[in-house]
Design a protein around this nucleic acid. Structure first.
Lengths: 219, 219
DNA sequence: GTCTATAGTCTGATAGAC
DNA sequence: GTCTATCAGACTATAGAC
């Protein structure tokens, strides 16, 4: 397949134009509209580049209505990050539960879930990976805890694959970093118009992860 | 090697504490101090989270001195992004010129340069990958041009490797994205204290890139 | 819960002395 | 080129009516 859709002249940091929040988030009412508006603006302009007025204007409410639902602008970001990290962790865990306990199979399942989660919620993922630093230590702590849980799912699979001599890997941390990075960056360039389905991308990157740990594919 | 140094409780988006600018940047005088201060603050807090007053306070000059050297705060960011992209491109090109014209060798050389560049200038790299969106279209255009040049170096190598049937790759764009992502994310977690040297990381990730394109290593 | 009005602060940027 | 002084507007958040 040729190289296309390389987002040539735009300096937008996210290719996706639309984005959903996970199904369990209540989008009705002002609170939901504020969350949706904040998600779009934080993804596009960053937390610091977005004002409470911007969020409320896009949500179709007055600038003060935000404060009826959230203590502060920072808490809106914290809630979006919590939603995103929670959904991501649940998808990873669900993917693991669906497959047989073979490290190679589990690795592919985890990477597929990691990648498809970033494709399904690109704005949440961009905000999660680019705006966490805007949160105070106190508010980022529970989110970092979820992130560590998700990371440990992959670490455990890598370590089991290494212990079973299925994976040829000399440095677990670097392997973790490389495989994670591939998925993390997807959120920034994926768009439904990129010519590949989410499943195609997830399968391809699961294959790359398998190759990284030294699994060879029967062609 | 075990998993360590996973930056447990910090929500800083960059692990590196110190960062140099490339050697050809003049750090003497107020202009250099403003650039250095802005680099640290943009990397840590983002463009929108940093004020002109913050930059000048850290640089040890009065808030107006910035305007003697740059037309605006945005131009400070633009200059940092230009420096970073320029240095990155020159390192990629130099790496290519040093090796024999074999796609497998060239791929490893490019990835080593890509990774070591992000390790050597992590703050520049973080700002480049996380703050480009803060620039207006007009000011981001020349920077995006450099980025496309750098990207095409890797694309060309991938396409030659595929044409020579050395690489087993079915989707060039996804391969490009995966390999680029591994290097891009390094800037966010690398620190001299992470227990690996820049060369070790660059070599390991060059090996991962080789595996991704289907090259098998003679163990 | 949503509004109008606004407090108090910080913002990027400029004018003009030296 | 660096300073002091400052403008005009935008910022987050609050008070209080309905």
């Amino acid at each position: 397949m040729p190289v296309t859709a390389t987002s040539p002249n735009s300096n937008r940091r996210i290719a996706a134009e639309e984005s959903e929040l996970p199904a369990d988030v209540d989008l009705r009412g002002a609170r939901g509209r504020v969350l949706t508006a904040a998600l779009h603006l934080f993804a596009d302009l960053g937390y610091g580049g977005t004002s409470v007025r911007d969020i409320c204007a896009q949500a179709g409410v007055q600038p003060t209505t935000l404060y009826a639902h959230f203590p502060s602008k920072e808490d809106v970001l914290a809630e979006l990050l919590r939603i995103g990290h929670d959904e991501h962790y649940r998808r990873l865990r669900a993917a693991l539960l669906e497959v047989e306990p073979d490290p190679a199979v589990q690795l592919r399942a985890l990477v597929r879930a990691h990648v498809s989660s970033h494709c399904s919620f690109p704005m949440l993922a961009v905000v999660a990976s680019a705006e966490l630093h805007a949160l105070s230590q106190a508010k980022s702590q529970p989110i970092l805890a979820i992130r560590r849980q998700s990371e440990s799912l992959l670490v455990d699979v890598l370590e089991r694959g290494i212990a079973h001599a299925q994976f040829q890997v000399s440095d677990t941390l670097l392997t973790l970093r490389a495989i994670s990075a591939i998925g993390t960056r997807v959120a920034f360039w994926f768009s439904p118009d990129c010519g590949r389905s989410i499943d195609q991308i997830a399968d391809q990157f699961a294959e790359f992860a398998a190759r990284i740990v030294g699994l060879t594919t029967p062609d």
